[in-house]
Design a binder for these strands. Sequence first.
DNA 1: GCCTAATATAAGCCGCTCTTAATACTATGT
DNA 2: ACATAGTATTAAGAGCGGCTTATATTAGGC
Lengths: 113, 113
Amino acid sequence: MCAVHAFDVLGDPVRRRILELLVDGERAAGELGAIVQDEFGISQPGVSQHLKVLRDNGFTRVRAEGARRFYAVDPDPLQEIDTWLERYRALWAQRLDALDTELRRGRRDRRTT
Amino acid sequence: MCAVHAFDVLGDPVRRRILELLVDGERAAGELGAIVQDEFGISQPGVSQHLKVLRDNGFTRVRAEGARRFYAVDPDPLQEIDTWLERYRALWAQRLDALDTELRRGRRDRRTT
DNA sequence: GCCTAATATAAGCCGCTCTTAATACTATGT
DNA sequence: ACATAGTATTAAGAGCGGCTTATATTAGGC
């Protein structure tokens, strides 16, 4: 209902799991429900509420086919998170460089000993 | 204290803000506190507790200098999130391709009309 | 129209997280 | 040793998010 940040949505393990289940393409709500209910031991309305959160925050698109609802990932908010992470990429890139340097030094030291 | 997912840590806006403040390098707890207290209207202990969560979950490293604590980002958990996002990158890459195709078609159509 | 299947919404309870206030810890200066 | 600055911890209260049960909606078959 209220406008929440993308990270708040992904803070819940059930919602992350649902997105993982959708990575290879759309699935019906009932299919998602069966899996998630089994894995997390929650009820059908419980799953449905998580689907609502994903919907309301733009993480999924829904297609109706008869009484069934087919959910699919909408990548927009994920891309937003990706953008947020962007500024930190330099940090681990830099650390990998340091590791690389360290490894090279290690090899050189072994050679000289 | 308990092991939480990286996304749970980033679910809080104060903690995200602290990480943003640390992106350009380390800062003292007090400096972070002053900014965050002002922006979010919370108390010093409030900030300190968020710093604890970041510490306990490996998002920050701390260096003591006298009574001061200098915090810096540790990129490990952020990289973990980046890895999680990896599988969805194809989705928006694909969408950008579609957009690109659409733009090309648009140009072609305008030319033929 | 009625029955069933598929999914969503409503209302209430419970637990957890965030907050504050009070307090403790640690280091430095005098 | 004492005072003060900087930071962390503890305890307790408030609010919110998520779960459940019960109910409503929507669509299709007979």
